[in-house]
């Protein structure tokens, strides 16, 4: 464990908490893409199946359970409890066009052709594009509540910090995983446009307006 990965995991945890607080407090999931939340649940489910057969550390196990519970909890809030506030007309990204390519690529480019390894690889590829429906929704509605932009900033920061973790691990532990690194860079690049708007607008107290 290193400071970059710890900060990344905490940033990820904070993002999930911000989202749950936003939905619970405002009793609304307006501006949130349910499609992205479904993709995140698929990502964590396919990645954390090793909970049953691999114990890394208490921290690792607890965080996996928290991420799984929070992602399913968010889907419950969005598609059941506060279903009436779900923006079904704007949340129209075709996630099958993200799931299928990630699955095919995981079968072709992976470290080992074993079920758990293929599922882990699939989850890595899918996570790198899982935010697209959310960014698509924000661009379609043209704006986002500030708390939603804080959620997105934390979520984008998590994998950006992981890049520093991978650099650190390469030099300090001579360990690297190209699949995770390439997918993590793609994932972070997808946030760049948002990061720019967040830093130039939201941090100055303005509303996040995307050129529709």
């Amino acid at each position: 464990m290193n400071i970059f990965r710890l900060l990344g995991d905490l940033s990820h945890l904070l993002a999930i908490i911000i989202l749950l607080v936003k939905i619970w407090k405002t009793r609304s999931c307006a501006g949130i893409s349910g499609k992205s939340q479904i993709l995140f649940a698929v990502v964590y489910t396919s990645r954390y199946l090793d909970l049953i057969n691999a114990f890394i550390s208490p921290y690792n196990t607890i965080m996996k359970i928290v991420f799984l519970a929070a992602s399913y909890g968010t889907i419950y809030l969005m598609y059941m409890k506060f279903k009436a506030t779900y923006d079904v007309n704007h949340d129209t990204f075709r996630i099958e066009f993200l799931i299928a390519p990630a699955a095919v690529l995981a079968l072709i480019v992976n470290h080992a052709f074993e079920p758990l390894e293929i599922l882990w690889t699939f989850s890595i590829y899918l996570e790198s594009v899982a935010i697209l429906p959310q960014l698509f929704l924000v661009s379609k509605t043209g704006e986002a509540e500030s708390i939603t932009s804080h959620y997105l900033f934390m979520l984008g920061s998590y994998r950006a910090l992981y890049i520093f973790n991978w650099i650190y691990r390469y030099y300090a532990e001579n360990h690297y995983d190209l699949i995770a690194i390439v997918a993590g860079i793609v994932q972070t690049v997808l946030y760049c446009d948002f990061f720019y708007l967040y830093i130039t607008k939201v941090l100055k107290g303005k509303k996040l307006q995307l050129p529709a």
Binding site: D9, N165, N174, Y176, D177, A180
Partner: peptide
């Protein structure tokens, strides 16, 4: 390149 046996990252 170290063989990836166990993924210890979240």
């Amino acid at each position: 390149n170290m063989k990836i046996h166990q993924h210890d990252e979240l």
